[in-house]
Simulated scan of single mutants.
Amino acid sequence: MQSVLEECYAVDVERAHGLPPGHRQGAFAVDGVTLYEDVTYDHAGAALTIRLDGRTHLLPGVAFRDRRRDNAAELAGRSRLVYGWRDMTADVCGAAREVAAVLQRRGWTGAPHCCPRCAGRGDWPPPGREW
């Protein structure tokens, strides 16, 4: 079951911009505890994890767990990007550009595209980058 934030990411970032659909709720061990990552792209050839932070991530225990999770990902050589409600409501195209850049840097050979929102603004692809 996806949260509303996860659904927004899947539709407005991945699908709208031609990114590969991520694997949802993948299990990872952190400090001997199994935690579930929102989105991973290992199946697309990229060691990238996306964390989608809703309101519960502001709680002290959750914030500590997330920092440990980020550190564990770094130690394992995984790229991580984190987005919240503001990203999914105010700048999904910016999030898509960042995800596409990391996916390609990590080995994804696909080609993203602009969505109707960013098509008229001329901000895709980023300056100096041809797709």
Rank of each mutant, 00 (worst) to 15 (best):
E6Q: 15
R15W: 04
T56V: 11
A16T: 01
A96N: 05
A95V: 15
Q25K: 08
W85Y: 12
L35P: 00
A44M: 09
D38K: 03
Y41A: 00
V99T: 04
T56I: 08
D42T: 06
G110V: 14
A100K: 00
L103P: 01
D12C: 11
E7G: 07
G120W: 03
C115N: 05
A16P: 00
G128Y: 06
P116V: 07
A16R: 15
V39Y: 02
G18H: 10
V92M: 08
V99E: 01
W85E: 11
D38I: 05
V92I: 12
Q25H: 15
P127I: 08
E14V: 02
D66G: 09
R80F: 00
R55K: 10
T56F: 08
M88Y: 11
G32Q: 06
D87V: 00
E6L: 08
R24Y: 06
P116C: 09
H23W: 13
A101W: 07
R15G: 01
H113E: 06
R97P: 00
L59F: 07
G120H: 04
R121W: 10
C118K: 08
Q2V: 07
G77A: 10
Q104W: 09
C114R: 13
I50H: 00
V102T: 14
P21K: 12
A95N: 02
D70N: 12
H23Y: 07
A96E: 02
D70G: 09
R68W: 05
G122V: 08
P125D: 07
P125W: 13
Q2Y: 05
G54F: 09
L5C: 06
V92F: 03
